[in-house]
Design a binder for these strands. Structure first.
Lengths: 92, 92
DNA sequence: CTATTATTTAGATATTTGTCTAAATACCTA
DNA sequence: TAGGTATTTAGACAAATATCTAAATAATAG
């Protein structure tokens, strides 16, 4: 288990250890969304959602690009491969 | 995504969101160990390890059986399948 | 330019979490 | 039964976290 993988996995587990953040990822699975669209899907405030999106970004579970005054978020599943690797290592 | 799976995945993510607990699982991958053996592998106190083991038990990531005055812990990888299912669902 | 909309940042607060020490429980052995 | 070992429980405390409101930043539209 490389130091790099341990570092990534730590961040990803942290990011995934929250129901709201997991639901955000599920929303983004369907299609890319603006920060506002994502916030509208939850009962919590926009700043809180912004914070969740930041944590997801740090874990590289989402990417974002600015389009005018909007910020569009997309799901990024590449780190999930690292996560799977970690889990499989535990299994065999 | 069933309510049951969401419930399980929530507990498992909680349990896995800690370096010490992840290391405990890695130790148990090699062989079953008593609570004391596990505690000896870390710098933190026995009560703290006991607490970590409790969280891992609640998530069903470990099982335990009493053998005399010892409690022997074993890795249980079955919930990891549920976790994998959740991840794969996100990926495709 | 000014007002409006979208998003993030800053700072405060309550809750959760990881850790500790001390005590309790359970089992074993002489 | 008494003393020792293994483990857990209870309670305290500091650090981390999720949330909020208010303010700042950035872009658009009139």
């Amino acid at each position: 288990m490389s130091k790099y993988l341990i570092y990534i996995v730590n961040k990803v587990f942290k990011a995934l250890n929250d129901q709201t953040r997991r639901e955000i990822l599920n929303l983004l699975k369907e299609k890319d969304l603006t920060a506002g669209d994502i916030a509208d899907a939850f009962q919590i405030t926009k700043p809180s959602i912004s914070h969740h999106l930041d944590i997801l970004s740090q874990a590289e579970l989402v990417t974002s690009q600015k389009q005018g005054q909007y910020v569009i978020y997309s799901l990024n599943t590449t780190v999930l491969d690292d996560l799977m690797k970690w889990i499989i290592t535990l299994k065999d």
